[in-house]
Nucleic acid binder design. Structure first.
Lengths: 340, 340
DNA sequence: TTGTAGGCGTTATCAG
DNA sequence: CTGATAACGCCTACAA
């Protein structure tokens, strides 16, 4: 019975060839000090024995793991999946592995994940923090002070001066609202995300910017709170529509809520976009599949992931602490829900 | 300047307390041999120094990493995201970490990922294989013969006798088709996935089963090949509709293709489900958001993930090689696209 | 060009 | 109950 490949070490190869383990190590890492002949001999034997280098041992010895940890609230949101794809693209060419973890928007779990990744000695952590409002800037300060570089993207704890790649949420919201104004809408409602989070406060502010600029009223009666879920958006629209001041357009800080709202509007017998126009946020793929298709704000997730990866990889190499924020510009994708 | 938490070891704690490293190790792993007093002292000091155990060193020493590797084609398909959630639920209670990787349906990349996970000495690999038809049963045989337990789910290389959790694709397809027949449909088309993959052959077979049972013809003119993408589904329907024999129902092996097909049907001025009814496969969340909402076959992804995790964890503990297949029963979710 | 030795941070086994 | 020691598999000065 052949020995398990997992258990085969450079020593096994060494003894089979009458060489020393250090030579094997050198040959396998293409150290020019070893002669071409023996190197090829060694590589052939390694293949024959189905040898797999033990990454943990190597990592322990070298002091780095060549692993990047990524923490996102949930991988089934296309935004996060795309960011991860961007990260992987960059990391893979640099020979780094990517460990993806989900916080499920639970800050407690998030802490456990961060500590777990640190325990694995990942070379760096890329994270969009949980949106339950319970995460703690101090915790992240202590982490980045602890030797593991942390790179934020999208969402991050308020009041933290750290490396981040974000989009200009305010401008995105402004542009979305402006687009609705340009379509002649006068009573534009906003379904806004949790206001304890920067990104949603910014989106609310951008919405207000556009209204003010156009001299439109910015009434509480046109604002409703949502939590990014479909059913919630449905209820939010019903709520909005039950008030005296009926909107002729809705800008939602979330595609999911916008989708729910659209469905509710249709159930109210409203025609879209004639009676009410809709714009969402995140440009999830399903927005294209709806009838009518849902306009949305694109957040450049791929580019966000690539930039985040590049930046943290630079920091890993330089040991430098670069704290700037990279700010990407979003764009409004106009579809059937807001244009005839 | 405080030492980086990442660099703090049990030796640092030991010297600060005038104890030996082995005592620290025991205390931190709650070994009852150490006195309550010193244990608490040690734990306090560990917290104070912000100590993080080095998982790699521990893994190296113990011979296991407490990590599970998961490889899926893409994480942004809700089916896979849900399976992963199921896996995480089970793994986390057992104290295992989950490393998620994406093959992007590229068998070459998949091999690299498998080897990478082996190099990390993950305790086991859970995988749904790439659908490019280039994966190699022999490769996986050699892997599972190499000491790393491999647990398949959903898709796997043909002709491989290995542990797997799958759904009864044939029954799912049968039930979906039967549902359409029960709605009085006579010319039911099938948009079928790549026939080099077991799962899609099974779905095709289930479709044929239902037709035969009902005495309906199973014509080539009602079959069209798809690749699970939206645009492709669109073209597929246009193609189908350009033929002489027009279908009055479509069963698609993929939700994405079904969605594209529905859009194409609407562009042809057809009314759904009156003129043509649709049923997809996978029960992606967007199916509910469409107008009309798309009927689909649910694959029990959560349960699939949980079962896969439980089974591989059993194998890891027992060192036993259990090769049975677990087969889950799918169910048809009837929505507006196929019922009035 | 190859061999030797030491150590990365833990844990398991022996002693004491 | 605690201390000493060796080993997990690899890498890297340094020596030969």
């Amino acid at each position: 019975m052949k020995k398990d490949a997992n258990r085969i070490t450079i020593h096994d190869i060494a003894s089979e060839l009458g060489l020393h383990a250090s030579t094997i190590s050198r040959a396998l890492s293409d150290n020019p000090a070893v002669s071409k002949k023996t190197r090829e001999l060694i590589k052939a034997k390694a293949r024959e024995l189905n040898y797999r280098p033990n990454q943990m041992a190597a990592a322990l010895r070298r002091g780095r793991s060549d692993m990047l940890g990524v923490i996102v609230p949930a991988i089934d949101r296309n935004f996060f999946a795309s960011v991860i794809r961007g990260i992987e693209e960059e990391a893979n060419v640099a020979g780094l592995h990517v460990m993806v973890c989900q916080s499920y928007d639970d800050s407690e779990r998030e802490r456990v994940l961060v500590e777990g990744l640190q325990a694995m000695r990942v070379d760096g952590i890329i994270i969009s923090t949980a949106k339950d409002g319970l995460n703690d800037a101090d915790f992240f300060k202590s982490i980045s002070g602890s030797g593991t570089p942390v790179q934020f993207f999208d969402n991050m704890p308020a009041g933290l001066d750290a490396a981040a790649v974000v989009i200009n949420d305010r401008r995105g919201a402004y542009a979305a609202t402006k687009h609705l104004i340009d379509q002649g809408r006068k009573r534009i409602a906003h379904m806004r995300g949790p206001q304890h989070l920067d990104i949603y406060r910014e989106r609310f502010a951008g919405y207000q910017d556009a209204l003010k600029e156009a001299g439109l009223e910015c009434s509480d009666a046109l604002t409703v709170d949502i939590n990014s879920h479909f059913d919630n958006g449905r209820k939010a629209f019903a709520h909005l529509w039950s008030r005296d001041l009926k909107p002729d357009a809705v800008f939602s800080a979330s595609d999911y809520s916008a989708a729910g709202a659209m469905q509710s509007a249709q159930e109210h017998g409203l025609s879209i976009p004639a009676d009410v126009a809709f714009v969402g946020f995140a440009n999830e793929p399903f927005t294209e599949l709806m009838t009518p298709s849902l306009s949305s704000v694109d957040q450049q997730p791929l580019s966000m992931g690539r930039k985040a990866a590049r930046r943290i990889m630079r920091r890993i190499k330089n040991e430098a602490v670069e704290k700037e924020r990279v700010i990407l510009e979003p764009s409004v994708i106009v579809r059937g829900s807001s244009a005839s």
